[in-house]
Design a protein around this nucleic acid. Structure first.
Length: 753
DNA sequence: CTAGGGTTAG
């Protein structure tokens, strides 16, 4: 697709680049014309070059030119450039009183760039305002989710003006997820004023209804956004884009794609906004699988390359996000990021850190350090995602560092960042720091409470969680109850759990979802009340998922309940054929029950299939370096020494009464081999390594932290308890499920996990 | 000038 604006710009810039300034200046009239085109499609970089050129031209300039440039600054969110242009205008074209037209542009520019204070100031100082001034300010507040101010402004406007379609549209655009009521009122107002047929209003209605639609099973026939879309007589590109974005924000990727194909068939064409919504809809979709998403992501990526849209940083940024959401590989994301090269900004940096944050937090932090070396200031988006990466690391060292950077950057006390810190400190084992942040946060939202409850649950502090819940001063949501029920299940609080589960709907009107049923199955199951767990599964209003069955299977394993275990394992195999748990657990159950034949059968079945047991991995951090241990320890270069230290330790522990739990191991090999297998579980190797390198331990050498990818086994649990006593050290193990704080021979979980 | 359009914690 040819890009006329680009070629026009190049004619202009050639004269400029070749330093042929007289020629360029003589093109001043033409320049105005070209500047007009700059605002339509060109990139931020081209705007910056245009501004450089503009400053070489002799003033005075027409206000029209300033207005055009302010518009371009607004579109590219170039606040710094906008401010210098504003100053330039004030010193070269002093107009008193300020021109209404240009001031409206200025308000728009400051709004779009996020400087609402300046916009508001200009607005207040205006001797007279028109509808556009009001509308620009309202949409500015709308874009920054300041709903209440929007409606105050809107009512203020109604005093002096009869709203037109733009004013109504901006009022609609200010409605957030929870402002459906107000949205309806504005819709009614637009009907009264006969503005509802106007495409501007209809487009805003599509967006408003998409955002505020109720959750539940999606039904196209009951989609208000869709019914608005269908009735628009003359749809424009924005109508289509808004509808695609509407599907996107409800996670309906397949619908977004099918609307796009219809667009294509109807010959509508598309722009970058279309692509942005489409990519986002594929990444965050719930109604189609990953293969579908990756397939269309790739197709659209090709389309974007062919049509030249990959030169736009926004398109690349959102594509990075989609590929990372769909598991398209961090390497691909990184390649895309590298291609952005010259126009990288803080948002694209944040996107690439997002791509790494969960699967490779260390790489994410490495990227963050690289970012700090650039001339870009991390914003609170960046910090929140970096803290998420910190939560995936072994020690709180990184979280502490980032915390100090958050303070230096002036974001201290920000609720979102406080929430991220609560989460990060808790995940790194420092629940005291979580609580400190929680206490010091001036404004706590639902996520703050949920994060703190979750932190207590993770550390098995059920009583504290329940106490905190009783102090909660806002409406809980489904996540609140997941945290509470998890806490109960980790502390054998069966009756409390039942009470909470019943109160969910009875007292708070929240219908239990799959997560909550899984927690209840866990509560019953761990406590050995397996029949009650089974009964609950049978009367669930929805189909149990793999989490429910693997939870039940785990409980059956703990209480050697073969019949239910077989049922759960079969269901799990059906739902997740690749999950090794259904084989491993079943074989263990048979084995510990002495049924070697069946145990062997299952193991052979597993060997014959493609399913492989997830290898146990433990991470321990020594002297600012993370060391990874796999079961058997073959990977580590210092394996020999570590094994010798471990054997020495085992000898000492055996004197204290440590008996290897060989009966629980998976293998029917020789007793000695079994022991060997157990001895070389990754967390034991990690511990041996940590005490070998004792000098370099963090936290004053008192606490050893180990992160594990799967649940700790009974034997390692016994081992850690005794080791904490022998070594007089606190050992903190985070497994896939929760934290275990071992101290003086005891574990914080009271052996119930 | 004003409707849609990149990164966001549990």
């Amino acid at each position: 697709m040819p890009r006329p604006t680009t070629s026009a710009w190049y004619v202009f810039s050639r004269h400029f680049r070749s330093a042929n300034l007289p020629t360029a200046c003589s093109l001043k009239a033409e320049a105005t014309n070209l500047l007009e085109k700059v605002r339509v499609q060109d990139t931020r970089r081209q705007l910056q070059e245009t501004l450089l050129l503009f400053y070489t031209l002799t003033p005075p300039h027409s206000l029209q030119v300033y207005a055009t440039l302010f518009h371009a600054c607004a579109r590219h969110k170039c606040l710094r450039e906008g401010i210098s242009l504003h100053r330039h205008m004030l010193s070269n074209n002093p107009v008193n009183p300020p021109d209404l037209f240009v001031t409206n542009h200025l308000i728009n520019m400051y709004c779009k760039c996020g400087d609402l204070n300046s916009a508001n100031y200009l607005f207040d100082e205006m001797p007279n305002r028109n509808l556009v001034s009001w509308t620009a300010l309202i949409s500015g507040y709308a874009q920054h989710r300041r709903t209440d101010e929007c409606f105050r402004l809107f009512s203020g406007m109604l005093v002096d003006f009869r709203p037109n379609e733009f004013a109504v549209a901006s009022a609609l655009s200010s409605c957030g997820e929870r402002d459906g009521e107000r949205g309806l009122q504005v819709h009614a107002l637009s009907l009264k004023m006969s503005l509802d047929a106007c495409v501007y209003v209809a487009n805003a209605l599509i967006t408003m209804y998409s955002k505020s639609s109720v959750y539940g099973v999606y039904n196209l026939d009951r989609d208000e956004a869709w019914s608005v879309f269908k009735t628009i007589e003359f749809r424009n590109l924005i109508s289509w884009n808004s509808m695609i974005a509407g599907f996107q924000c409800r996670g309906l990727g397949a619908q977004a794609i099918s609307l796009f194909s219809q667009m294509h068939r109807d010959g509508i064409g598309f722009d970058r906004a279309t692509l942005l919504s489409l990519f986002a809809s594929l990444g965050g979709s719930t109604n189609n699988d990953v293969d579908f998403g990756l397939y269309f992501c790739f197709q659209l990526h090709c389309l974007a390359i062919k049509t030249g849209f990959m030169s736009e940083i926004e398109v690349t940024t959102t594509l990075i996000k989609s590929y990372s959401d769909l598991g398209g590989g961090t390497a691909n994301c990184y390649r895309l990021f590298m291609e952005t090269n010259s126009c990288r900004d803080i948002v694209s940096w944040t996107a690439i850190i997002v791509a790494f944050a969960e699967c490779d937090p260390e790489e994410a932090l490495f990227l963050f350090r690289q970012l700090l070396r650039e001339d870009l200031a991390p914003d609170w988006y960046t910090f929140s995602i970096v803290l998420k990466a910190c939560a995936g690391l072994v020690t709180e060292r990184h979280a502490l560092t980032v915390h100090s950077q958050v303070i230096k950057a002036g974001f201290e006390g920000d609720t979102v960042l406080a929430n991220a810190l609560i989460h990060a400190y808790a995940r790194c084992g420092s629940i005291a720091l979580s609580k400190q942040i929680f206490n010091e946060t001036g404004f706590r939202d639902l996520i703050s409470w949920n994060s703190m409850l979750k932190a207590y649950a993770l550390h098995g502090r059920a009583k504290k969680a329940l106490l905190l819940f009783s102090q909660m001063d806002i409406q809980p949501d489904p996540t609140t109850f997941v945290a509470l029920l998890t806490a109960c299940s980790h502390a054998e609080l069966v009756d409390e759990g039942i009470k909470i589960f019943d109160s969910m709907f009875g007292k708070y009107g929240i219908a239990p979802q799959l997560d909550h049923y899984a927690c209840m199955v866990d509560i019953f199951g761990r406590a050995g009340r397996l029949l009650e767990a089974e009964e609950l599964i049978n009367r669930m209003p929805m189909e149990p998922d793999s989490v429910i069955w693997s939870t039940l299977l785990g409980s059956c394993r703990k209480h050697s309940e073969t019949r239910l275990a077989k049922l759960a394992a079969d269901k799990l195999k059906e739902l997740e054929p690749g999950n090794s748990l259904s084989y491993v657990q079943m074989s263990n159950i048979y084995f510990s029950g002495g049924d070697l034949d069946n145990a062997g059968l299952i193991r052979n079945e597993m060997k014959g299939s493609v399913v492989r047991k997830e290898p146990g991995l433990s991470l321990v951090e020594i002297g600012n370096r993370v060391h990874e241990f796999a079961s058997g320890g073959r990977r580590h270069p210092e394996r020999e020494v570590i094994c010798r230290r471990l054997e020495e330790l085992i000898g000492q522990l055996e004197e204290m009464g440590y008996v290897p739990e060989t009966s629980l191991a998976l293998h029917d090999i020789e007793e000695e081999h079994k022991k060997e297998q157990l001895y070389h579980h990754s967390e034991k190797l990690a511990l041996a390594f940590a005490i070998m390198k004792e000098g370099g331990l963090c936290c004053g050498g008192r606490v050893i932290r180990i992160n594990k990818n799967i649940r700790i086994c009974v034997d390692c649990h016994n081992f850690m308890k005794l080791a904490s006593d022998l070594l007089q050290k606190e050992i903190v193990v985070r497994d896939s499920n929760r934290f275990h704080h071992f101290k003086d021979g005891l574990c914080s979980c009271s052996d119930y996990w």
